Computed example of a mutant assay.
Amino acid sequence: MKTFERGIQWGAIAVGALIYALGLNGFLVANHLAEGGFVGISLLLLYKLHVPIGVSFFILNIPLLIVAWRQFGHEFVLKTAAGVAGVSAFSEITQPVRIPLHDPLLAALYAGVITGIGLGLIFRAGGTTGGSDIIARLLRHHRGIGMGQTLFAIDFLVILSVMMLIGKEVAMYSLVALFVASRVIDFVIEGASSGRAMMIVSDHHHDIIEAIHRELDRGTTLLQARGGYTGASREVIYCVVSRDEVSRVQRIIESIDPYAFVTVNPVHEVLGEGFTFDGEASSSGRRRKKWL
């Protein structure tokens, strides 16, 4: 099973690199837009010096991969090298793919979606595309600087360079593509099975629980709690539902106890019965459903 799972991961990195390269050439290069990180540097080298993206991107990452090999685990470096090599190779292979659009905003949106899907697949498989990510890991390891700060600083400097060398409009549209890509990456990594976690404090918790079980066929959990002000013991209902079921739970609560205290929090990924398992529940599954 481990061999099969590893094969799936390496395959996902390859497919992700191909999709990313298609978005890179098809929409960013075709519409003269830019990107953040080392790919953004490679795009600047392409636009100003006509250096192929695959060549410059691969060369820029070689010293970082050597340093990372000595600092981090070999599996991380191998998967990162696969991502770098895949993006470099596919960016050359997919050069003929060009989809010029009259609307640069539309090009930025499509570029963000497609490159985000590609990067999301690579990240979900445990790989990266090197560059900024390796620098951020090195600075965190040696200087204690947060990865988010480093990645933001590098993207900021690259986009600032784009603004000075190419133009502010290109930089602004490139920021749109970066933002869309970041949201799509989160979606791919976290999965489509996101939901909402609801915490319900009510004196009529038994009635609410029965209604949720009966009308939504969702499980619930009772948490023992104590009021911070009164010191009284309370039972809090914890329930995870899909996004479209939140309003149904709210209507149930309102019909039973309009004065109930309710919080709703996003859950990025939900695994288990009712979300990723739809088969006939086993005895253990039925016991789990009773409590969750």
Rank of each mutant, 00 (worst) to 15 (best):
T80D: 03
V87M: 08
F90H: 06
D133S: 03
E169L: 11
A125N: 04
V84K: 00
P100W: 07
P104N: 06
T115V: 12
E169R: 14
T129A: 10
G116I: 04
K79Y: 05
I135T: 04
V84N: 02
Y110G: 14
V162D: 02
L151S: 01
S88C: 06
A171T: 09
G130D: 04
R143G: 15
T80N: 02
L160I: 03
G146K: 13
A82Y: 03
I134P: 00
L151H: 00
R140E: 14
I114V: 14
G130T: 09
F152W: 06
T150F: 02
A107H: 07
I117A: 06
E92L: 15
S91E: 08
S161Y: 01
H141Q: 15
D133C: 02
E169W: 12
A153M: 09
A81Y: 10
E92T: 15
T80L: 00
I135W: 08
D155C: 01
G130Y: 00
P100Q: 05
L119K: 02
V87R: 05
A82I: 05
V162E: 03
V158G: 01
I117P: 01
A85D: 10
G167F: 00
M163S: 13
A153C: 08
H141L: 14
V158F: 00
I159K: 01
I117V: 12
V158K: 02
V170D: 12
F156C: 03
K79W: 03
I154G: 00
V84D: 01
A125R: 05
G130P: 05
M164I: 12
V97M: 11
G148K: 07
R137P: 03
A89S: 13
G120P: 01
Q149L: 15
I166P: 11
L101V: 08
P104V: 10
G131C: 09
G167I: 04
T128L: 02
A82R: 06
G148N: 10
D155F: 04
R137H: 12
V158H: 02
L165I: 10
A81I: 08
S132F: 07
G120R: 00
E92A: 15
K79S: 09
K168G: 14
S161D: 00
L106G: 11
K168E: 14
I117E: 01
R137Q: 15
R137C: 02
D103F: 10
G83A: 10
L139R: 07
V84T: 03
G118T: 01
G144L: 07
R137G: 00
L151A: 02
I114Q: 01
I159L: 13
A85E: 14
D103N: 15
R137F: 03
G118Q: 02
V97W: 15
D155Q: 02
L101Y: 06
A81E: 08
I93T: 07
V84E: 02
